[in-house]
Design a protein around this nucleic acid. Structure first.
Lengths: 206, 206
DNA sequence: TAGATTGTTAATCGATTAACAATC
DNA sequence: TAGATTGTTAATCGATTAACAATC
């Protein structure tokens, strides 16, 4: 069972469960049920139970799920039971906002390196990072063993940066430039593009 | 055929087609094929043809698709053949970065109103907006007939803001706070949460 | 005409749901 | 024990793919 390949569509829901659990815990709750999670997430209770059962039995019949326990298990499954060091490429207005954003803390990520091509920015500190020259990026990332990077450079430069990151042995890229970057097999890339989200919704407007 | 309800999973791919077409056009291309789009997007060519055929025959056998024509038709389908006025609630570091972001222009959105509770920010200009006091938000949005809003306030305030936006007759909310907001039936809400995207990928890391 | 690529059908594949025995 | 809720199976539902006739 655990050796079966779990479909990505199931994996994509686990972080949502984790976020909902976090929220319930802050509400002071100790336990929850598949039904309560379903109400919060707009997903059926059956599906939540089925998803979780791919990884083991985390609940107790009649009782539901312990929030701290299920949280811990989900964090293990998603490999966020420790913090990953993350590099940020492009320390413009958006990059600075991301570096200062508190929401990564405690959810598995720590942005510890930032790179920019503007000499005026070198040495400045935002959150946990100090801006370094982009020329030294490849070596710095490789030496630090960093495997996760966020791209916040203009769209025209994003593919070039992605290519360099892949050479520096980065395996996971979160891309804020609104283009589909080409990356080799084995490299995971996701795009954050607010316009895509908006356009998905305007279809339903008059 | 056109009267059938189109599944949301198909709608969710149309903005991606639009973005890929945009990119091909900037490369100087005049026409494309389902295969070329497939290569760019990591989606099968058959699926792209099937998706598009839900809305009509936009291609020509042997020739492929005219990029300007298909772009125009997709923009019509998604209702982004004109610009929507958008309100931004919370003009902090992230809000300012979004207001100044050029990527909305020409893709159907114009952020024309911004609200913040900090008196020191009132009257400041970012992109196409001037910051207004959040106390007047409800009336201002309703009077302007704005139906799309972005929430960039801290997580603890986001639900309250969402409730107020719904009362002001906003129909579509893009939420940057990392929580699942509760909104009534008929209101569309999507969350932008970079941590969710990262956690989906760390599952595949060692 | 020959070659290419669409639009569409039927077959396959996979995901979701309903239902309930197991059990806390 | 009675009530509640899980974990799991089987049935349903829906989405994707393969294949090809239509046609530019």
């Amino acid at each position: 069972m655990l050796n079966d390949k779990i479909p990505d569509i199931i994996i994509s829901r686990l972080p949502q469960y984790l976020r909902a659990l976090n929220w319930l815990e802050m509400d002071g709750k100790q336990t929850t049920s598949s039904q309560e999670l379903a109400d919060h997430l707009g997903i059926s209770a059956a599906q939540i139970r089925k998803d979780l059962s791919q990884f083991g039995g985390f609940g107790k019949q009649g009782m539901g799920y312990s929030i701290p326990y299920l949280t811990k298990e989900l964090r293990k499954i998603l490999h966020v039971d420790h913090n990953w060091e993350v590099a940020l490429v492009g320390v413009g207005q958006l990059g600075i906002a991301i570096a200062n954003y508190q929401g990564f803390q405690g959810r598995g990520f720590n942005i510890v390196m930032g790179f920019d091509s503007d000499p005026g920015k070198i040495g400045k500190k935002y959150g946990n990072l100090t801006v370094q020259p982009i020329a030294g990026m490849d070596v710095a990332i490789k030496n630090a063993g960093i495997v996760i990077a966020m791209i916040t450079v203009p769209a025209g430069q994003a593919q070039d940066i992605a290519d360099r990151l892949v050479k520096a042995e980065v395996k996971t890229i979160l891309n804020y430039a609104p283009i589909n970057l080409m990356v080799p097999q084995g490299i995971r890339m996701r795009v954050i593009d607010p316009v895509i989200e908006l356009q998905r919704m305007t279809y339903y407007l008059e």
